[in-house]
Design a protein around this nucleic acid. Structure first.
Lengths: 67, 67
DNA sequence: TATGAATAATAATTCAAA
DNA sequence: TTTGAATTATTATTCATA
């Protein structure tokens, strides 16, 4: 539940940190009390339209579609 | 060999078509006479700094880092 | 240095289930 | 409708080889 809350948190997280994997994002959510697993994070990413962009050092990290 | 040629072709391909997977890109290269496999395409993508963006219908497709 | 085969890591989907 | 376990698909890396 609370998908829309979680979505907002995800957007904040990917702006604040460089998150490279869905497991990493799931773990970050856990720390904030959202107990979700990779499968769900994958769906959230699709629903939010996130993409992977090149972060520092060319590493692929998640980001909102529009900057 | 001909890596820089191939890189140029890859850039052209991802601009012309919506290419969703590395296998798909490898296959497109085959049709143009570049016999490479997914492993190599993966490296090319890193070297070119390509990212996956949302294409039509929210599908993730390869694109140059800068538009 | 560039490449591929095999493998590991990551992400998306299917198939229940609540 | 949302979720997760299991599975499948996709991508990155390791380990040779030329």
């Amino acid at each position: 539940m609370n998908k829309s809350d979680r979505h907002a948190v995800i957007l904040r997280l990917v702006r604040e940190r460089e998150i490279a994997t869905q497991d990493e994002l799931a773990q970050a959510l856990h720390e904030l009390g959202y107990e979700v697993v990779q499968t769900t994070v994958s769906r959230d990413i699709t629903e939010l339209g996130l993409v992977k962009v090149r972060g520092a050092g060319g590493r692929l990290v998640y980001a909102p579609a529009a900057g």
